[in-house]
Every structure is written in C-alpha cells, then in structure tokens.
Design a protein around this nucleic acid. Structure first.
Lengths: 135, 135
DNA sequence: TTGGGTGCAAACTATTTGCATTCGA
DNA sequence: TCGAATGCAAATAGTTTGCACCCAA
C-alpha cells in the first residue's frame, strides 16, 4: 500500500498538486482504475467507512484535478458532471436510461478531418458522445 | 404574420403538440432561425416587451419540444442546457470562454464507423462537441 | 363541463463560496 | 510560524414540482 501511495504522491506532484491526505484519499478512489464517477459517487466512496473528506473538498479537489489534467470532466447529463480517470483521448457511450457512462473502444470509431477552428481560437478537446437507451 | 403563425401551428400539430398561445410565442422565438438558446435566453426573449410566459412554462415547453423532436437539447455546459432549433444531424463548437455554441459545417468533419452498441441498446443520437477557447 | 395547460411560488439539488479553523513544511 | 488546505454552512442558480385557476373543445 505504501508503494501505491508513493506512486500516487509522485503523480500528484507531477501535476503540480500538493499531496494532502484528503487529495490522496480521493486520488486513491478515482485513479484506482479507468472509471467514470460523479462527485457524489466519489464523496460516498471516500467516506464509505468513516467520514474523512467534506463535500466541499471533494468538489474543490475534483475541480483541481480536472484543471491540472489529472482527470477529465465529462459533461453528458445536465444534472451532474462525471470525472473520468482515463485522460487518454477516447469517446463515450451514455445510456440515458441507466445513467451509465462507458468507453467506446478506440478502434471502433473514427473521427476524421477536424474542422478549421474559428478565428482566434485554439482547440481544447473533442468530445464524442454516443447516446443510447435501453430497448 | 398570420401565414407564419399558421405554418408554426401546423408544425406544432405535426409534432403532436397542441398549439397554445404560450407555445406559439416560444416557437416563434426559438424556431425563427437556426440558433442555440438556453432556457434563460428564451425566457428573456419571449418576455422582452411584456411578460407573456412564466418561467415554469418556458422550461416545461422546451422540455416538451425536445421530447417531441421539434428541437434538440445540447448538453455542453454543466450550468445550463441549450436548445437547438436545427434538428438535422450536425456537430458543434463550444467556446467555453464565451459560452458560445456554434455549428460545425457539415462537410468539414466526418465521423465514420459508428461502433457496435452494447447489448439491448438502441442508438439515440451522436453528439460531437469540439471544445475551443480564446487564444 | 372538464381535462389539459398555465402561472406562481416553493422545493430541490448540484455546485460554489465565505470564513474561521487546522495542518504541515 | 504562516500560508495553504479544509470543513462547515449558507448562498447560488438552474430546473422541477404541487396546486389552484383558467380556458377551449
């Protein structure tokens, strides 16, 4: 576990984030594996056994992680933001019935010909969301 | 103007929406031309000269229009939903600095190879959002 | 008349913010 | 010690909801 924490601490530092214990807790949950969690879910997971991080800190920390490029915000539902621990370029399925967000295999979709951007603008990111629903 | 109203009324009926005066007002604003408006903006436009539609009715009506396929919801910003009067398939630029949502010319971007959907699911829509920011 | 549509205000919920306290280098 | 980080609660804002009223078929 200590090894894992050391790796996480290095990762945070690498992203210019000072590794406090709350941030480590959140990173431990969210970065454990590729996944999509809402702030609510992170809050619940982190405090599952005993309360260690407040709601405000979860929101602030997730916002910080996103700004620093450690995670990626995925906006598919007006009612909540998802945080994706996979920052590699990839696209998503969103099942609006179940609220489930899943990755689209990278080789099964292709976006070609990124269009010319409007004057005075630079590219931030390209989001592709394939919305699906239960039959 | 009457001609235009008649056309709008027919359009509403065609979408299985009973054409009340408030719905007509909202349709007149939103469907005037291809555009992207938030509920707030619609509310402000509709009541620009004198108050004719309540906030709740604007939200309910936009939701109804979207459900009936008369307009399309565009979810790009966690803080508000945009309603697009153009329901033809097309993609968007979103300038997160200015909050401006614009169309991507249809011929300047290509999405190929729609991926296989998960079991028991059907396609709803494909959203492509190219996020940009001011230099 | 009668049920859908509307208006109003209150409720709701995700998120943000102000500020006092606490922690760690 | 001293500034950064945190916690708490209140504030915010978009959206939804409950309910009484009203209108058109």
């Amino acid at each position: 576990m200590q090894d894992n924490d050391d790796a996480l601490i290095d990762l945070l530092k690498l992203h210019d984030i000072s590794p406090t214990s709350q941030r480590l807790e959140i990173a431990r949950i969210l970065l454990a594996r590729p996944q999509h969690l809402s702030a609510d879910q992170v809050l619940a997971s982190v405090n599952a056994s005993l309360p260690v991080v407040s709601k405000a800190t979860v929101y602030n920390t997730l916002g910080l992680f996103a700004k620093k490029g450690l995670v990626r915000e995925v906006i598919v539902d007006p009612s909540k933001v998802f945080y994706d621990s996979n920052v590699e370029p990839h696209f998503h399925f969103y099942n609006s019935d179940s609220g489930e967000l899943t990755d689209i295999p990278n080789d099964s979709i292709t976006l070609s010909q990124i269009p010319e951007l409007p004057q005075g603008c630079s590219l931030d990111s390209v989001d592709v969301i394939v919305r699906i629903r239960e039959d």
